[in-house]
Structure formats: C-alpha cells, structure tokens
Design a protein around this nucleic acid. Structure first.
Length: 388
DNA sequence: TGGGGTTAT
DNA sequence: ATAACCC
C-alpha cells in the first residue's frame, strides 16, 4: 500500500477547534499510520472531517441549543443537524416538513448566511497549518494534512534513543468516491460495485471514460490514491448566491444582485486581494434539468479595481451596472422570464504589491509571475501602494 | 435540494 | 462558458 490515512474520530458536543487539535495530538502521539521501512513513497496524511459542522458552530454561538435536537435550515431544507436530531430520525438534506414530522421538537436555526461558518472553517484550517503548511481544504468542514515530513523527523529522533520499530495503527483511507455522472456511465458498463471496477478491463474503461478518469478511479477502487495534498491557501474566488421561488422582473433581480454584491465587497475588502473578474450566474425555472446554470463574466475595469477596499468611494454603482449588463446579456428582459437563483462571483484575485518593475521583488512576486498562484504566507506583502 | 467551493475542457 | 466534481 502506498498510502495510509487516518480518520480521527470526532467527539460530539465539543468545540470544533478542540476536536481538530485533539485529532492532531493523537496523530503526533504516533497513532497516525506510517510505514517505517524504507519505502520512500509512503506518506502520512491525516484527514480531519468535522461532523455536522454548521450545527456545531450554532451550538457554540448559542450554548442553550446544546442538548436539544438542532437542525440548520437553508430555505426549506435541513442541510445538517446535530446528533440529538439524528437520533430522532432527522437526516442531512431532509425537507423541513419531513424533518418536523419525524421530530416535532426539532429546533431550527437559519444557516443561509455562511459568514460564521466560513470564519470558523478557516480557523480550523489555520490551526492545522501550525502542524504542517500542507493543508488542503475540501468544502468548509474537511481538511487533509500531509504530516510526512513531521513524522519522518520524529521517527529519526525515536530511532536514536530507542531500538524498537514503531507499531502502527490507523486504517487505510477508504475511498469510495464516484460522482453522479460517472456513476451513471459506469452502471451502463455493468459496473456497480468497487469489485466490478477493480476487475474491469482497463483498456475498455479508458476508451469509455478517457485515460485520466479511468486510470484514477481504477486505482481508487484498490484504495490507492497517490494524489498529492495540495495546499489550498487563500480562496480563489468569493461568491454569494440566493435561491428563491421566483424572480421575474429586472428591478427584483437588481435588488437581489445588490445585496449579494454588498456582502461580497465586504469579504473581498477584508481579504485584501483584488478581484479582476466578475461573474453573474442564473438558474432559470424549468421542470426538468434543474441543475443547469448559465453564467456571464467579464473583466473588472481597472479604475473600479483601484477603488476596491478604499471604502468611501462608491464602487457599488459601477459594479452593479456591469452586473446588470451581464444580466441582460443572458436574460431577454422584454420577454417574460422566471429565475430561481442568482449568484455573483468575484474571482481572478490578485495580490497587490509594492514591487517595482525591474527589482528583485518584481520577479519574486507570485501575482506577477505568469502562472500566478496567489502566494500566501510565502510572500507577505507589506504596505499597499499600488501600481497594478 | 442549499450555499458554497475546485479543476478540467 | 460550461461541465463535472467535492462538501
């Protein structure tokens, strides 16, 4: 086996940060899996998966909720719930009506505003980054930490003062992942179990799914995942969306877009980097094909970018104007329309910098090097003079 | 089915 | 710009 993974158990009713810290302590204590014998390819990766994260954040915010069956509601869905609620039959992504029917005592809090969840989520990631900078986020509540280097260092120390080999506990991370679309295609090939996939002809699978997907999922079917833990760093995009039963007029749309944009501007202001692209996404009402969205994006004019984060200058107006142009590009407002979702995204984030052309800093600045992978702690920016 | 995110094409 | 994936 190339890789061992560990999924630390979380404990109910604890502060999320404590959970993460305890998991790491256990990993440090040697409970994480490691293969000492020479194989240089073996890695130690801890998977920290927080259960019912939103519900836990809510219980920390309001301790009176602890001990009660609690669900977090977005629109008419209970997106997650605590263990008390689960015991009483509430499931993730359950309809509010079904949940109330199953569990009349269920306490519901609204979780449509993700601000506090997002903040707590990054606190957890930052905590894990103290152990190793190689932390990859998956959603708001999962982190993968590559502890290979840390463990190897400790192993060397250990070997010098003790003659024993370390005993290893921990289990192979069980990867049963296959997305919806791929699952359908596999089923059409008669593949419905992990075993089916393990024994299926690699050649035919490659023809069917393309070499990249085919080889990857077949390795996964044997529990082998050699993909690196890629440090997530700061987010690549900021977006806010709102879904609703019906939006059928331009003014209505504009009001909602203004709301979304206002929150986004706060977030982007706190981040410090500047978005160079803006995108508007819509979902049209339709009986079928509910999943499909359409979007339009465009560069943010540089004079608008400069005003970002300066607070007093009105950046809303020009940006709303841009968004409404994108809107009318997608929606013929002279015809009746029915939208069920609007989303605004600010992306293509660039670090502002003091680097002048021709200096060492200029060439060392990630946002100016061609690939621009928004450098995080590797390059801390100082004062923000601008010369974009 | 929410309100986010990422990468590949 | 979209599609597919993740939570």
């Amino acid at each position: 086996m190339e890789q061992l993974g560990v999924e630390p158990e979380e404990e109910a009713g604890r502060d999320e940060e404590e959970d993460a810290a305890q998991a790491m302590e256990r990993a440090e204590a040697g409970e994480a899996g490691v293969v000492p014998e020479g194989s240089s390819s073996s890695r130690v990766i801890v998977h920290v998966d927080l259960d019912c994260f939103y519900a836990q954040v809510e219980m920390i915010s309001n301790p009176e909720l602890k001990g009660k069956p609690l669900g977090v509601q977005q629109k008419y869905l209970v997106v997650t719930c605590n263990y008390e609620a689960r015991k009483l039959g509430v499931k993730k992504l359950m309809n509010v009506r079904d949940a109330k029917e199953k569990c009349p005592q269920l306490v519901l809090v609204n979780g449509e505003d993700l601000t506090r969840y997002r903040e707590m989520s990054y606190k957890v990631t930052e905590l894990l980054e103290e152990f190793s900078p190689i932390v990859e986020r998956l959603g708001f509540d999962e982190n993968f930490v590559d502890l290979t280097e840390m463990v190897e260092k400790r192993l060397q120390q250990h070997q010098s003062d003790e003659l024993s080999a370390l005993t290893v506990s921990g289990h192979v991370y069980n990867n049963q992942c296959i997305g919806y679309k791929t699952a359908k295609r596999l089923e059409a090939l008669g593949i419905s179990s992990v075993h089916d996939l393990q024994t299926f002809s690699p050649k035919i699978l490659e023809k069917e799914l393309g070499i990249s997907v085919a080889q990857r999922i077949q390795k996964l079917s044997f529990g082998e995942d050699t993909s690196p833990v890629t440090p997530s760093g700061p987010p690549q995009s900021f977006s806010e969306e709102d879904s609703f039963k019906k939006c059928s007029s331009e003014v209505e749309a504009k009001n909602k877009i203004e709301e979304l944009l206002a929150s986004l501007l706060n977030r982007v202001c706190q981040d410090g980097r500047k978005p160079h692209t803006i995108r508007l996404t819509i979902r049209r009402y339709s009986s079928e094909n509910h999943c499909s969205r359409e979007s339009r994006q465009c560069p943010i004019p540089s004079h608008v970018i400069q005003k970002l984060g300066t607070g007093n200058c009105d950046v809303m107006t020009p940006m709303v104007d841009i968004l409404m142009k994108l809107f009318r590009n997608m929606v013929n407002v002279k015809m009746p329309f029915h939208l069920t979702l609007l989303s605004v995204c600010l992306c293509n984030l660039k670090v502002l910098n003091t680097a002048k052309k021709g200096t060492i800093d200029y060439y060392l600045t990630p946002s100016l090097s061609t690939t621009s992978r928004s450098g995080k702690r590797s390059f801390k920016m100082k004062d923000s003079h601008m010369e974009d």
